[in-house]
Amino acid sequence: MGKFAQLLQDVLRLCTKYFPIYFSGMKNTVLLALIGTVLGCMIGFVCGVLNAVPYDPKDPLRKRILIKVMRAVIRAYVELFRGTPMVLQAVFIYYALPYFTDGAARFNSVWAASILVVSVNTGAYMTESVRGGIISVDPGQVEGAMAIGLTHVQAMMYVILPQALRNILPQIGNNYIINLQDTSVMFMISFTDFFAAHRGVVGATYLYFPSAVIEMTGYLTMTLISSFLLRRLEQRLEGSSSFELAVADPLTLTSGVYRNPASGELFGERSRDFIGKE
C-alpha cells in the first residue's frame, strides 16, 4: 500500500506543479486532432466524391482520360499516405523544404506543418471510408433521384452524400480518436502536445512512472468524452424515432385513410376474387 500512497503523492505533486504544461499539451492535442480530422474529412469527401464520378464509353475521350487520370492520382495519394507511418511523413515534410532550398524556406510554424501532416494523412483514410460510404448507399436511391430528373451532382448533394455521411460517421469518430493518440508522434517536429508535456516534465523531474499515469488518465479522459459526444451526434443524425401526424392541417380532414368509393371492398382484396366473381 505504501507504494500506492507514494504514487498518489507524486502524481499530485506533478499535477499541481506542472499543471499549465500538461493542460496546454492537452489543449494542443485536442485542437490538432480536431482540426486535422475536420480538414481530413473534407479532403476525404472531395477525393471520395471525385472518385465516384461516373463515365460511360460514350463520353468524349477527353472526359474519359481526365476521369481516369484523376482516379489514378487519388489512388496514388491514398496508397502513399496510408502506406507510410505518420511520424515519417511529418519528418519528411518538415525537413524537405529547408533541405531543397538550403534553409531559405521552412515551415515557420510547427502548427502549420502538424496540421498539414495530420489532415493529409487522415484524408487518405477518409477517402476510402467515403468511397465505402457511397457504395453502401442503396443503388435504388440513385435511380429514384435520376427518375425525378436530378443531375449526378444534385443526386450526390441531396440524396447520396447525406446518407453516406450517416454511414461513415462511426468511421469519422474512429479517425478522430485515433488522431487524439497518434498526434503524439508530432513531438518529432517539436510540436508541444500532451505527450511532449510528459517528455518535458520527465526531463526535469525523472518521475517517469507517475507522469505516465497522468498521461494515461489524460488520454483516456479525452477519448471517453469524445466517444460520448460522437454517440450523441450519431443519435441526432439518426433523427427521432417517432413523428407527429400533421392532423392540424386543414387539407388532411378531407383525406384521412384513402379509399376509392367506386372500388368498394372488392378491389381491396386479392385480384383473383374479382376474376372469380366475374
Binding site: G239, F243, E244, L245, A246, V247, D249, L251, T252, T254, S255, G256, V257, Y258
Partner: peptide, 12 residues
C-alpha cells in the same frame, strides 16, 4: 392528400 398521405408529411 390525394393519396391519403398528407398526415404523414413529417415522417421519414
Amino acid at each position: 392528400s390525394r393519396v391519403g398521405m398528407a398526415p404523414y408529411c413529417n415522417a421519414r
